[in-house]
Amino acid sequence: MLRFIGKRLWHGGLTLAALVTLTFFVMRLAPGGPFSRNRKISPEVQANIEAAFHLDEPLWQQFGRFVWGVLRLDLGPSTRHRDYSVNDLIASGLPYSLTIGFWAIVIAALVGVAFGLAGALRRNSATDYLAGTIGVVGIAVPIFVIGPLAQAFFSLRLEWLPVGGITEGWRSLVLPILVLALPNIAYISRITRTSMIETLRENHVRTARAKGVGWRRVLTSHVLTGALLPVIAYLGPATAAVITGSILIETVFAVPGIGRHFVDAALNRDYPLVMGITLLYGSLLILFNIATDVVRAILDPRIRHER
């Protein structure tokens, strides 16, 4: 088991290194620079600014400086937000992004599994159809359509919740969390339903039933353990979906999280901030993928002994 985890961590580290290197060079090679859009400034001033941010050095030297910074956990100053370091910006935005992402995944897991179970146990019932409809809508209608519609209805029409921003405490986070959870509810309920139906047909379940084990007992100890494996496997992709979603959600609901920071930073060529957020998102995603694999390996010995 330890070897399995070690191998995964090693591969994860390689992936992260590849991601960061690629991002670094892609960002520098993209046309434009952090100070090229400003009003005309004299070449001397421009050169001074660039020297202050070490942009005049050769690329490989800048890359070395960046790697050295990462090793010291210092990502440098932002080129866009004056007087802020990348660490400050991430520290101020991360709590919002994490809160929204965490609760969205928790809600999606609970509601999704509940819908999926209900649908599989009572196939073609009203609940099954309701879950199916939510599933279809959640998958097909993108967040950036549902989000504004939810704002229009719950905030502008009914005036129950704030339209956006973060000024009203938990009330301002309700809509972002629910909208972000919706597509994941859809995926999780679909996955749960299919795998429940498959597991219910398995031989060991029939055997347990035939031997007179109570239905409740069969469900909890024979069906659920197997049926929830694919749901756990979805945790990795769910993290990716939440990262993607958080960028949209933070744009729609004007939340100052790191998702919105990333888009702004990429558009403004704020190299240090882009690198910082890429590093953060990349590590989060890779760690969650590894955690998912480890949990699956604990639950299913077959995975552990592959390769």
Binding site: T15, L19, T23, V26, L29, A30, Y281
Partner: peptide
């Protein structure tokens, strides 16, 4: 596959 998809697609279209 291990890359965050959004980051990749945003960076590439900028590049």
């Amino acid at each position: 596959y291990g890359f965050p998809y959004v980051i990749l697609v945003i960076l590439l279209s900028l590049l």
